[in-house]
Design a binder for these strands. Structure first.
Lengths: 251, 251
DNA sequence: CCAAAAGTGTTCATTCTACACCCATGG
DNA sequence: CCATGGGTGTAGAATGAACACTTTTGG
């Protein structure tokens, strides 16, 4: 097995940037396609939703899938991830985080493509997704009603959901899903939807408020048929300060 | 920008598995090299150590680096990760987990190579690493004394350390670093080394033992110049049972 | 004045923290 | 019998769960 002597950092003589370090041909190593697939979570009326596309091209034409695209050889992969979501949602700076890499040989029926899963959280009310060149259509699909997905996208989605549930317990990511100004009951409902649990109202507010991560606005809900709730916003600055001191958000 | 119409799942006509779905050439997308880099943590005499190699080939010849290798076009990436560590340590089934993908365009001086970071935990006493075709040498390096590393390996290492610290709080991964039989004081020292903290002996044992994840062996330490400690082992079976019921390990 | 949800206070149980103390072994 | 670390008990503080209660709005 002569190839065993290759190390990560040796290279192809043919790649775009190639430098011929050795006389052996490394071309065969440089045949991978790289893609990004995005799991975009949105939240609306107490339901967690996912952004799915209807595929407009083979393979799996007509099937539901996650929005994703091949990465250009001269494009950073996190830039590619941002590009995909910008095309779909029009948002420029989006919270996006990797979940993991999917690198099985046979995951793509038409070639060796490894993909990186990203997840993202957005406030549905703020952004109206529009099908671009991408696909026949883009839709918010309720988490409870996810259809069968193309490729290994079902697995990617499940993994992203697990990561989200994990993260939301230990980091204040949940605020990304809410409008900037929200009531404590909204926040509670969001957590209950994300984690499939029920919390006591009084205890929930005490926990959250005791962290001092919310700024109480001098503004209330409007047009509700009951006592209007006080609105809050997330104090990102304070969170960054606290975290620098070793504070860790829990539940 | 005609390329905008490509989707993730369209493909190269030239790749090994190619099927010509379109008349456009996608070859340029299939030029990536894919590699795996491993951050192997070991623990010995209260010190956390990392397995590093001394590079035997350009680029960065003679420099310290993480063990890593290119993935074969017909090889799953997690298999590649296992292969690399098997070559270095001789261990077959190793606990390995992804940290993240590094996909910057210029991260590799000689071509477009995206790499996946993996981290792994092993009991140093159990395995003696040997330099294979890999490198001029393989060494355990104290975490406090990590030299400058080739490529972006410094970043990969730092990220892996953060992931480890995160994981060790919420999942019982720490046991992988200890011998099968260990004393509670060993476990405490491990956690203190991993997290840079100090715990009260009495409270630490109460917390750990109350989880019922340790099996108390009928065996004590030998040849210590003080009262010998009771030895324990991790009850993986019980942990799996508990986790299935929604139990979550904390600290 | 009623419904509905916002918002608060109190009690009791549980868990956490600090610290003092006893125990077993080798030298 | 002493030094060394193993191992345990307890009191008080802090936190968390349950639940009843008051408040404010629209209709």
């Amino acid at each position: 097995m002569a190839e065993k002597t290759l190390t990560t950092e040796q290279t192809s003589r043919k790649s775009q940037f190639a430098v011929p370090y050795y006389e052996i041909s490394y071309d065969k190593f440089f045949q991978f396609g790289v893609s990004v697939d995005c799991v975009v979570f949105g939240y609306h009326e107490n339901r967690l939703k996912i952004l799915l596309i209807k595929r407009g091209a083979a393979p799996f034409k007509g099937m539901w899938a996650l929005p994703g695209d091949l990465v250009y050889p001269n494009e950073n992969i996190d830039v590619a991830a941002q590009r995909i979501l910008r095309d779909l949602t029009g948002i420029e700076q989006l919270f996006m985080e990797q979940t993991q890499v999917y690198g099985k040989v046979d995951r793509h029926p038409a070639g060796r493509v490894i993909t990186t899963g990203y997840y993202s959280l957005i406030d549905i009310a703020k952004h109206d997704p529009h099908a671009s060149a991408w696909a026949d259509g883009v839709y918010w699909v309720d988490l409870e009603a996810i259809p069968e997905l193309a490729f290994d996208h079902g697995e990617i989605l499940n993994d992203a959901l697990k990561v989200l549930q994990q993260r939301v317990r230990h980091q204040p990511v949940g605020f990304e899903l809410l409008p900037e100004k929200f009531a404590l009951a909204d926040l509670q409902a969001l957590y209950e939807a994300l984690l499939n649990e029920k919390y006591d109202k009084a205890n929930f507010r005490k926990r959250i408020l005791s962290m001092n991560l919310l700024i109480s606005l001098k503004e209330n809900q409007k047009d509700v048929p009951h006592r209007p709730a006080r609105l809050y916003k997330f104090d990102k600055q304070r969170y960054d300060e606290l975290r620098a001191k070793g504070f860790s958000f829990e539940l």
